[in-house]
Amino acid sequence: MSTTEVLISELVEKHGRTRNSLMPILQGIVQQEKFLSEDAMVSVARELNISAADVFGTASFYTFLDTVPRGKNVIRVCKTISCHMKNKDEIIRALENALKIKVGETTHDKEYTLLTANCLGWCHKGPVMLINDEVYPELTPESALKIVNEHMHSK
């Protein structure tokens, strides 16, 4: 069994085989692998006895259930109104320059993917970004770079 299949069987064991456990299972895969590969979706479909199209249909609805390859770490910069008013564009530009990628792309070493997100719920402390599940509010271009730098060297 591939590592993905092992992971899926563990998740199915934990959450059950009903349709209601589909979201927690898909979230568990994304947590580990950062995206849902075709193989992963096909195995989930087999485990839950639903069609692969059903799994893909559900997954592709949700922004955080990526169905295209992502880096080991996903950065999401909030782009909605309050963060826009507080210059989220500068944060994005600084990160694009530092990581040498555009929004939507992944670094060559597959370590970081840079994305934008709709309102992250920190409008009083924008601009804000998530690195994986961790939140970083009140950014400046300098602090954003420092945070990403420290993140790179914390492993």
Partner: peptide, 20 residues
Amino acid sequence: SGSGAYVCGEESALFESMEG
């Protein structure tokens, strides 16, 4: 947990999401 969909705050969309 949700997975990044604003519309799931709408109650019946939220049920659909919980049901997979």
